[in-house]
Simulated assay, not measured.
Amino acid sequence: MADINLTALNDTVKHYTNKLGTQTASISTLQLDKEQLQDLILSKDVELNELSKEFAKVSSLVKYKTITKYDTIAIIYTDSIPCDFTRLSTVKKEWYGFNYISSQSGFKIDSLTIPNQTTVITGTKRKWFLGKETITTDITNSNPYINVTDIKAAEIVIPVPWYKKWYVWTAAGLALGILSK
C-alpha cells in the first residue's frame, strides 16, 4: 500500500477522451486509514476538516478545482441604436470575471471565467449517537452561483467471504481446542 500511496502522492492530473467522447480528468487515489487521513489531509485543510466533522465515518473524499471558460458570447441587436458609441471594460469579481464591448449594434462578452472548488465527501451520518446510520454523499461548491441539481451516488459493497467471518474462526478455534486435548 505504501507504493500505491507514493505513486498517488506524486501523480498529476491526466486528461483523456472517454468512450462517450467527452473529456475526463484522472489521477491515482490515495488509500488511507482514519489516522493517516487526519494527519495528511484534514489537519492541513480547515474547510475539509469542518465538512468531514458532519460524518460519523468518512468513506471517500474528493476535492477538485475547476475554471469554466467561455471564449466569446456575442449578442447582436436586431435594430441598432441610432447613436455611435463603443464601451469596453473588464469585470473582475471573486466568483467570475469577463471583458465586454458594447456598441450601438450589440454587445460582446469575452473571456468569461468562473472559478470553483468542489468537495465531495461520502460517508455515514447519524442524527444522534445511537441513531440509524445512513450512507450519504455531500457535494459542496465554493462558488455560491453554482448549484448542484442532481446527484447519483452508489457505493459498491464487497461481501465478506464466509471463511473470513468471525464466527467461523471462533468455531474453528473451539474445535481445534477440543481436539487438541
Rank of each mutant, 00 (worst) to 15 (best):
H15C: 08
T17L: 13
T17E: 15
T17Y: 06
K19N: 14
L20V: 06
L20I: 05
G21P: 02
G21L: 10
Q23P: 01
A25M: 08
S28I: 02
L30K: 00
K34G: 03
E35W: 10
Q36C: 05
L40V: 01
S43H: 12
V46C: 02
L48E: 06
E50Q: 15
L51G: 02
V58H: 00
V58P: 00
S59K: 10
S59E: 09
S60A: 13
S60Y: 14
L61E: 02
Y64C: 07
K65M: 05
T66H: 04
D71F: 10
D71G: 14
D71I: 01
S80R: 14
P82H: 07
P82R: 09
D84Y: 11
F85E: 09
R87H: 15
S89R: 11
T90I: 06
T90P: 01
T90Q: 11
W95N: 14
I101R: 12
S103Q: 11
Q104N: 14
G106V: 00
G106Y: 04
I109D: 08
L112N: 03
L112W: 04
L112I: 00
T113H: 12
I114K: 00
P115C: 09
T118P: 01
I121K: 00
T122S: 15
T122I: 04
T124K: 08
K127A: 12
F129V: 15
L130I: 11
G131Q: 01
E133R: 11
E133F: 09
T134D: 02
T137V: 02
N141A: 03
N143M: 07
N143P: 00
P144R: 08
P144A: 13
Y145C: 11
Y145S: 10
I146A: 07
N147D: 09
V148Y: 07
D150Q: 13
D150S: 14
I151T: 13
I151W: 08
K152Q: 12
A153E: 05
A154D: 14
A154E: 15
E155T: 07
I156W: 07
I158E: 06
P159V: 08
V160P: 01
V160S: 08
P161Y: 05
P161C: 04
P161H: 09
W162R: 07
